[in-house]
């Protein structure tokens, strides 16, 4: 009920904007960004995409519009409103927009889309997928190098393929350094609430620390603050995810496995401007800078220099294609 009202207000707003702007002719690239529920200040996915958009607005002089979807049912209406306005590019953030993008992109085959974090399988949609396993591999190397107990931990939001992809990469990175290392892993829940349950994440982390884990990697969205709390309390290390979380707890957060969505958004807008837009599946891994470990002044004092060197070696090997990190999306299908 409440959602319906909010939704209609949004849709109405978008249409109004569309009408107001209808009469003016643009030469700049027109970009519409559809964010998911997190909104542009979620300090993760959406804010990263928004940063990329703002950068494009400033540097490429792109004409940008942003809408935040109040719930998962409004994606299609918001995307369609942009498509009817004949935007040059519509960017949809988050795997939850996949179905809506497929529908809208089929209805507007001339319209260019970027879908972040899912594969729409259409030629007018650039499906930007991140190679989380590659970044997680490096996180695993970092964890193994900093663990004194030879036990490391992993806290995932839900037991879903995406999280398993992180876990498999992390495990293989750690085992590449030391095959005898033990990796503990827990997931928080089975519903969307798992990503916003720091109290439970903290208990799970404390239990892992009890079992001697001394570096813990979280892939649990907003629940991650509970992981950081537990690690800070017990003086062990944590690894952040998605955006650079190092500054949240200097001294506790060893590094963060970043997904550089801002870069992807910016590059996509630039490609449209340069008339080099590429549809279909595009993978952003270590090579293209889509994923990387965060190094800044906050983790410099705690990050071992020899570990950093080793990470750079592995990174070079992965980029050169000499080392392939097992990808859960591939290995799970082979079974």
């Amino acid at each position: 009920m409440k959602n319906k009202i909010v939704q209609s207000v949004w849709v109405f707003g978008v249409f109004t904007i569309a009408l107001l702007n209808g009469g003016i002719a643009y030469s700049a690239v027109k970009v519409g960004l559809v964010l998911d529920r997190g909104g542009k200040d979620d300090q993760s996915f959406n804010s990263s995409a928004y940063r990329g958009l703002k950068k494009a607005e400033a540097e490429l002089k792109a004409e940008v519009k942003t809408v935040e979807a109040p719930d998962d049912n409004s994606f299609e209406a918001l995307q369609r409103a942009f498509a009817e306005k004949k935007m040059d590019l519509i960017i949809a953030v988050g795997f939850s927009q996949k179905d809506a993008v497929i529908k809208t992109a089929k209805r507007f085959p001339e319209q260019k889309f970027v879908l972040i974090d899912a594969d729409a399988g259409l030629s007018n949609v650039q499906s930007a997928m991140f190679e989380e396993h590659e970044g997680s591999f490096l996180a695993g190397v970092a964890a193994a190098k900093h663990s004194k107990t030879k036990v490391i931990g992993f806290i995932g939001g839900m037991d879903i393929p995406l999280v398993k992809r992180f876990l498999l990469g992390y495990e293989s990175g750690a085992k590449a350094v030391d095959p005898s290392i033990k990796v503990l892993s827990n997931t928080i829940g089975i519903t969307g609430e798992a990503w916003a349950n720091p109290a439970k994440a903290k208990e799970l982390t404390l239990a892992q620390i009890q079992q001697k884990a001394d570096v813990i990697y979280h892939v649990s969205g907003n629940s991650g603050s509970g992981v950081f709390d537990a690690c800070a309390q017990k003086k062990v290390l944590a690894i952040g995810v998605d955006s650079n979380q190092n500054r949240l707890r200097p001294g506790t957060i060893l590094t963060s496995m970043m997904k550089n969505i801002d870069r992807v958004v910016f590059d996509a807008i630039k490609s449209v401007q340069d008339k080099k837009f590429q549809g279909g599946l595009v993978r952003y891994g270590l090579k293209s800078g889509g994923v990387e470990l965060a190094f800044d002044e906050h983790n410099k004092p705690i990050f071992d220099t020899s570990a950093k060197k080793l990470i750079e070696e592995y990174q070079a090997k992965i980029i050169a294609g000499k080392l392939s990190v097992p990808d859960y999306y591939v290995t799970s299908k082979r079974k």
Binding site: G189, T191, E193, A196, N197, P198, A199, K200, A201, K202, E203, N222, S223, S225, G226, D229
Partner: peptide, 16 residues
């Protein structure tokens, strides 16, 4: 939840 069991308010943290 926000002060004792974790250390900040998170949207929807009552989690059922």
């Amino acid at each position: 939840l926000s002060v004792f069991l974790s250390s900040s308010f998170v949207r929807g943290m009552s989690a059922g």
